[in-house]
Amino acid sequence: MRRLWLMIAAIAFLALPSGYTAAQTADSASMANTQLADPAQEAEAKELMESLRCLTCQSQSIADSDAEMAVDMRHLVRSRMQAGESPEDIRQWLIERYGDYISYAPEAGGITWPLYAIPAFLVLIALGLFVRRLRRS
């Protein structure tokens, strides 16, 4: 029985990805859940984290999610803020890396302009049909 447990432990150890250590995840988790020393900087970091979508959960911000990806992203935001980067620089870097989907408020431009233009166009068509119907009456 003891051999069986040793074999299972050896297989589990060998199945870990290379470079994976408990210290790495503990380090990421500690920085992800530790507030920055500067209250103003922490407030900016929280505001930024609330505006970024967790790529694993997709319905939660990285501030609310407990997914490993969200933990890593919170760590990234706080460590970059601590290094002196602005929230907008961090947001732009994340958008370049993961795409517009990561932001709850994507910028109008490039590929997202139809999201803003189509509803306005439909409202104009509806208004034109309404005015046309009123003139006939």
Rank of each mutant, 00 (worst) to 15 (best):
P87Y: 01
A23K: 15
A83D: 14
D100P: 13
M49I: 00
M69Q: 14
A40M: 10
S28Q: 08
S65C: 15
G110I: 08
A83P: 05
S103H: 03
A105Q: 13
A43P: 03
L55G: 14
L115M: 11
I11R: 09
R97P: 03
S61I: 03
M73V: 02
E42H: 04
I95K: 08
S59T: 11
R132T: 08
V77Q: 00
R97D: 13
V131M: 08
E47D: 13
Q92D: 12
R91N: 02
I118A: 08
A117I: 07
E68M: 11
K46S: 04
M49K: 00
E50V: 09
V131F: 12
I125F: 06
G99S: 11
E88W: 02
M7F: 10
D89Y: 04
G84D: 10
L134Q: 15
S59A: 06
A67V: 01
L55K: 09
T21A: 02
Q92R: 14
A83L: 10
D38E: 04
G19S: 12
D100A: 14
R74Q: 01
V131I: 15
L36A: 07
L134G: 11
M1Q: 11
P87L: 02
A15Y: 04
G99R: 05
S79Q: 10
I95L: 04
E96T: 11
C54T: 04
H75D: 09
T21V: 02
S137N: 14
L55E: 09
H75R: 10
I62E: 00
L129M: 15
A126W: 05
A63M: 03
S59I: 06
R97V: 05
A120S: 06
P114L: 03
L134C: 11
S103Y: 03
R97S: 08
A108W: 06
L76H: 12
M69H: 12
L127C: 05
G128L: 15
R132Q: 14
D64Q: 12
V77I: 15
D27G: 11
G84I: 11
G99W: 07
D66G: 09
A12Y: 05
A37G: 14
G19W: 06
Q58R: 14
P106E: 03
T25E: 13
E107S: 10
A32Q: 00
A126R: 03
A26N: 07
S59Q: 13
A23E: 15
M81C: 04
D27Y: 03
I90A: 01
L134Y: 10
L6E: 15
S59P: 04
V71Y: 00
S79P: 05
A9P: 02
G110F: 12
P87F: 00
A63R: 07
L127D: 01
Q41G: 04
A9Y: 04
I8N: 06
I111T: 15
L4I: 11
L134V: 15
G99I: 14
D72A: 12
A10W: 06
T25H: 09
R136L: 08
D38H: 02
R53S: 03
S65P: 00
P106M: 08
L52P: 00
Q92Y: 05
D72E: 09
D72P: 02
A9I: 11
D100V: 15
F13T: 15
T34V: 08
R136E: 14
T25D: 12
L134P: 05
Q24S: 12
A105P: 05
Y116D: 10
I125E: 06
V123M: 07
S103C: 10
Q35W: 04
S61Q: 01
